[in-house]
Every structure is written in structure tokens, then in C-alpha cells.
């Protein structure tokens, strides 16, 4: 393969993997606190539509990005209220959030279908580093979202393992009773964790609409929110391990386009990410049988009630 084509493919892979990475980091933080949020698909849709509308009307993509983050974080609190305070089943609550988010995004986005975005994120070259052959163009000449994903990934890992609030967050997901006894507010930590998950899903979603495809279409998220939940498992709830999974799946999204000239039906190619998700889940489960070995937070999906024995 020509080196220029290889570079283009790899670069596209990193761009396609960026929203998956951001979403996965958010879900890791939420699930580490013990709250499984199946609403990622809906949250990413809300982020995508908010980002697009604000960017389109204001002409400022940064404003669009910030709005997407804030709106989606607020939207995620529906799941927090219902599943943490009202102790509803997290699976059902998360599904409701997904349906709601998809519905709202379609309803709000309708007038914007087919409208091109004029103001968008350009590539930012990092001085000196971007001059390195190959690597420079691949990694240091990317959009803001890519850099943000890398930085947030590092911060998430550092916070979770090296700082007091991060350790408290993990303990909330592992043993909420003991955490409460130490004066940690389980409910507060879980609300914040869900909110961070929402903010990152919003960032991931607006990447799709204002940077990746630069237009609004119905179903723009296309199942990425569900793939994120699978990636959270592959990453064993560790931000450092999220990178590989996210970019691997980014590659699979790119592969669809690469294989098209071979005459394979687009419908069959469109199955690729979903089939790969299943295959990887199966291989992963065979490799690591029990939940313990997977390092899942012990209280994941379990509701918590204060003062209960």
C-alpha cells in the first residue's frame, strides 16, 4: 500500500475512534461509581443535535461544543434522578434515556437536515511535533476533539487511580456502605459520575455532527452509543485500556469504506461494527470467564439505599 494512503487510512481511523473513546471514558467513570447508563446512544444523539444547532445558528463551533457538553450533562441527570434517587432499575431507566434522546434529537434536528455547516473545526498543528515525518501528520495535525480525547483519557486514568476523589469514586462502586461509613456521599458521587458520563457523551456526539460529518442526519450516532457500552467492558473499566478498543473500532468504521470498491454490498459492510462487537465480546468472555476477573465494579447495576443493612 502506498504510504500516503496508509497515512490517510490511519488518520481516518483515529478520527473515527475519537467519539468512541470519549463516550467510553464517560461510561467508565459512570460505571466505576456503580451506575450502568445504557442511555449513551440517546445522550450522544442529544450532544450531536445540540452541537449542530448551536454551531449552525451562532457560527461558532466552540460555543456549539460547550453547549453540547452542558446540555447533555443536564440530560444525563434524568437517569441519575430515576436510577439513584428513585431507585429504578438501571437497565430500564437507561433504555428510556436512549429512546428519549434519540426522539428529541430527531424532533429538534428536522429543520437542519441537509444544511451544510460553514463554520467548523479545522486541524490544529502542534508546533515542531507536527513536523515529524508520518507521526507528525498522523497524531499532531488533528482536530481539537482528538487532542481533547487524549487529554481527558489521561486525566481520567490519573484521577481514578492517583487522586483521593478518584479512589473515593471507585470505592463507591465497589463498597458503598463502607464508603458512606467513611463520610463519602455515595449519592453525590454517583450523580457527579453520571453527569461526567453525560458531558463526555455530549462531546462525543457533537464530534460526529460538527467535526466528523459536518452535517445533521437522522440516526447520526448509528449504534456507536451501544458499542461504547461494549468497549467499556473490553477496557475492563480502565481508561488506559479504552484507547486501544476505541481506535480498533474506529478502524472498523473506516474499513467499511475501504472495502466498498470490492463490490461487497453496503448492507453487509454496514454490519461490520456490530458483528465485530459481538465477536470481540465473545472472545473476551471466553478469555476471562468470571466477573471478578473482568474487574467489573462490584456494585455495578445495584441500587443503593442509605442506612440499609
Amino acid at each position: 500500500m502506498d504510504i500516503a494512503i496508509l497515512l490517510a487510512v490511519l488518520k481516518r481511523t483515529l478520527i473515527a475512534g475519537t467519539p468512541l473513546l470519549l463516550g467510553t471514558l464517560g461510561e467508565i467513570i459512570a460505571e466505576r461509581s456503580g451506575v450502568m447508563n445504557l442511555g449513551v446512544e440517546g445522550m450522544m444523539s442529544v450532544g450531536a443535535v445540540t452541537g449542530f444547532i448551536v454551531t449552525f445558528t451562532s457560527g461558532n463551533p466552540y460555543l456549539g461544543m460547550i453547549s453540547a457538553v452542558i446540555v447533555t450533562a443536564a440530560f444525563s441527570q434524568i437517569h441519575a434522578i430515576v436510577s439513584i434517587s428513585l431507585q429504578a432499575n438501571q437497565v430500564v431507566s437507561g433504555l428510556a434515556l436512549s429512546m428519549l434522546g434519540i426522539g428529541i434529537s430527531v424532533l429538534w434536528g428536522k429543520p437542519y437536515i441537509g444544511r451544510p455547516l460553514h463554520s467548523k473545526f479545522g486541524e490544529i498543528s502542534i508546533p515542531f511535533l507536527s513536523d515529524i515525518p508520518f507521526i507528525g501528520e498522523l497524531i499532531f495535525n488533528q482536530t481539537l476533539f482528538f487532542y481533547l480525547a487524549l487529554i481527558i483519557g489521561f486525566i481520567a486514568w490519573f484521577m481514578l487511580y492517583k487522586t483521593r476523589p478518584g479512589i473515593a469514586l471507585r470505592s463507591v462502586g465497589e463498597n458503598p456502605k463502607a464508603s458512606e461509613a467513611q463520610g463519602i456521599s455515595v449519592v453525590l458521587y454517583r450523580y457527579i459520575a453520571v453527569g461526567i458520563g453525560g458531558a463526555l457523551a455530549g462531546l462525543a456526539g457533537c464530534h460526529l455532527s460538527i467535526s466528523y460529518s459536518k452535517s445533521w442526519i437522522e440516526g447520526i450516532v448509528a449504534g456507536r452509543g451501544w458499542i461504547v457500552i461494549a468497549l467499556t467492558i473490553f477496557a475492563a473499566w480502565n481508561p488506559a485500556k479504552a484507547f486501544m478498543g476505541a481506535f480498533l473500532f474506529g478502524g472498523i468504521f473506516v474499513l467499511q469504506y475501504l472495502l466498498q470498491p470490492l463490490g461487497i454490498s453496503p448492507s453487509i459492510l454496514a454490519m461490520l461494527p456490530y458483528v465485530t462487537t459481538l465477536i470481540v465480546l465473545i472472545l473476551f468472555a471466553i478469555g476471562k470467564e468470571s466477573r471478578k476477573k473482568l474487574h467489573a465494579p462490584a456494585m455495578l447495576g445495584e441500587m443503593y439505599r442509605r442506612g440499609e443493612r
Binding site: L95, S98, L100, I104, L107, K110
Partner: peptide, 18 residues
């Protein structure tokens, strides 16, 4: 759009569990 129904689904489900 057709997917507006999802807004109904999601909202009603949230209130049912509440």
C-alpha cells in the same frame, strides 16, 4: 419526523418507572 414517537416512548417510560 417519524421518530418523534420515540419521544413519547421515552418520556412515558420514565414517568412509569417514577
Amino acid at each position: 419526523p417519524a421518530a418523534t414517537v420515540q419521544v413519547f416512548n421515552g418520556t412515558i417510560l420514565v414517568f412509569l418507572i417514577i
